[in-house]
């Protein structure tokens, strides 16, 4: 009848689990292909992780507070489409230069904020299930971007694209911008989750929202903020993503929501809320990206099985998570 004691030993197991998995993957990768640990490959893996990773940090807060957001992938596609459209339209007036890029970034952040705010308001003010609201907005944004692109692809003007490209390909001291931004987001997220009243309130709401309400926590506002924050982070991810390909279509950001949720769960955040850790999410993202990378670098298993292996890892992570709380 001993109810979930917070004994140091068990805590350590749940902490070590994801790290151990990551280390094993890195060793495996290094054994299979000598190029795996090259600076180029590491930079490539981290840059690719950055989009999902930035979104997954926001998702960690949403899930910790007992919510869910399925719309982030389509939201990213819509924000990218809108950003390209606005920049192309403004090009004759503003010309190529830093101001037009800043305009594009502002549009992305504002669009993300508004999209997150809409999700959050529907969930907290009207009291509709997060799953339903974001399933709906997922369809809406996906359809909107298809409509904006008229069924095809929205492409950023070529000269503009060349000017904007360093935001993805360039960097500081040899570290690319997406990695730098990802790192900043992670550090802020970790501090926010671990050391602020906001993070504490998120966990309290996810753990038991009635207790939070009776403890005078502003439950609706905190929940709303998690969705707004996630929306802004989707905007940030899009800012990094657009210069990479310079286009948006109905296939942009497909399944990103599931990858972000998977990363959060693999990282040890409880899907039902109440407990979350940002650094765990980072490890989750890295694990999922590394699997794809290793499969690409080796010919042992077909890269087409990437999804199957990722899926198995996700299920395994949840099984391990359940073992943390035996005999409910």
């Amino acid at each position: 009848m001993t109810t979930a004691t917070l004994s140091p030993r068990k805590l350590q197991m749940s902490v070590i689990g994801p790290i151990l998995a990551l280390v094993i993957l890195i060793i495996l990768g290094a054994l299979m292909n000598p190029n795996f640990l090259s600076a180029g490959n590491i930079s490539n893996v981290l840059s690719r992780s950055a989009f999902i990773g930035i979104i997954a940090v926001g998702m960690t807060f949403v899930i910790t507070a007992g919510g869910l957001d399925l719309s982030v992938g389509s939201m990213a596609a819509f924000v990218a489409g809108l950003m390209i459209l606005v920049m192309n339209t403004a090009l004759p007036v503003m010309g190529v230069g830093i101001p037009i890029v800043l305009l594009g970034m502002a549009v992305a952040l504002a669009a993300g904020l508004i999209a997150g705010l809409l999700n959050g308001l529907l969930i907290t003010r009207l009291g509709i299930e997060a799953f339903i609201v974001t399933l709906g907005s997922m369809g809406i944004y996906r359809s909107l971007v298809t409509w904006l692109a008229d069924g095809g692809t929205l492409s950023l003007d070529f000269t503009l694209r060349t000017f904007y490209q360093p935001v993805y390909y360039g960097g500081l001291f040899g570290v690319s911008w997406p990695i730098i931004v990802f790192a900043i987001v992670v550090i802020c997220g970790e501090l926010l989750m671990r050391s602020t009243a906001f993070g504490r309130h998120c966990a309290a709401i996810g753990s038991n929202d009635q207790v939070a309400r009776y403890s005078s926590v502003r439950v609706a506002r905190i929940r709303l903020l998690t969705y707004v924050m996630l929306g802004i982070l989707v905007g940030v991810a899009t800012i990094m993503y657009v210069p990479r390909l310079g286009s948006a279509s109905s296939a942009t950001g497909l399944l990103w929501e599931l990858e972000a949720i998977a990363a959060v769960i693999v990282g040890g955040t409880a899907l039902k809320g109440g407990f979350g850790r940002v650094w765990g999410t980072v490890i989750g993202v890295l694990i999922l990206t590394l699997i794809g990378n290793i499969l690409n670098l080796t010919d042992l298993v077909s890269p087409y099985l990437n999804g199957a292996i990722q899926g198995a890892i996700i299920i395994l992570a949840v099984v391990l998570q359940r073992e943390r709380k035996p005999g409910q």
Binding site: T3, A4, L6, A204, N208, Q210, V211, R213, Y214, G274
Partner: peptide, 12 residues
Amino acid sequence: TRGLLLDKGLRE
């Protein structure tokens, strides 16, 4: 169900 977070520690 309304007073305490049963799965959290005393400090929180």
